[in-house]
Simulated scan of single mutants.
Amino acid sequence: MDEADRIIGLYERHALAFDRQRGRRFFEKPWLDRFTGPLSPGASILDIGCGSGEPMAAALVASGFAVTGVDSSKTLIGLCKVRMPSAEWIEADMRRLALGRRFQGLMAWHSFFHLAADDQRAMFPVFAAHAAPGARLVFTSGPKAGIAMGEFEGEPLYHDSLAPEEYRRLLAESGFAVVSFAPEDPACGGATIWLAQAA
Results as ranks from 00 to 15, higher is better:
1 M>E: 10
3 E>I: 02
7 I>N: 01
10 L>G: 07
11 Y>E: 00
12 E>R: 01
12 E>V: 00
19 D>V: 00
23 G>V: 00
31 W>C: 04
31 W>E: 06
42 G>Q: 05
46 L>D: 10
49 G>D: 12
52 S>N: 13
54 E>I: 03
57 A>G: 04
59 A>V: 01
59 A>T: 11
59 A>Y: 08
59 A>G: 01
60 L>E: 13
62 A>L: 05
64 G>M: 09
64 G>C: 00
65 F>P: 03
66 A>Q: 12
70 V>N: 06
70 V>I: 12
70 V>E: 07
71 D>A: 06
74 K>F: 08
80 C>G: 03
81 K>S: 09
85 P>Y: 07
87 A>V: 14
88 E>K: 14
88 E>H: 15
90 I>V: 14
91 E>Q: 13
92 A>R: 11
94 M>N: 03
98 A>C: 11
106 L>Y: 12
109 W>K: 06
116 A>R: 15
119 D>Y: 05
122 A>Y: 02
125 P>F: 08
131 A>S: 12
131 A>V: 05
132 A>W: 11
134 G>R: 07
136 R>N: 11
138 V>M: 15
144 K>D: 14
146 G>P: 11
150 G>V: 00
153 E>Y: 03
154 G>W: 05
156 P>C: 07
156 P>T: 08
157 L>A: 13
160 D>E: 13
161 S>K: 01
161 S>D: 10
163 A>R: 06
165 E>D: 12
166 E>K: 13
171 L>P: 03
173 E>N: 13
178 V>A: 12
180 S>V: 04
180 S>Q: 15
182 A>I: 02
182 A>F: 03
185 D>S: 09
185 D>M: 01
186 P>F: 11
187 A>V: 10
189 G>V: 01
191 A>M: 05
191 A>Q: 03
193 I>P: 05
195 L>K: 08
196 A>L: 14
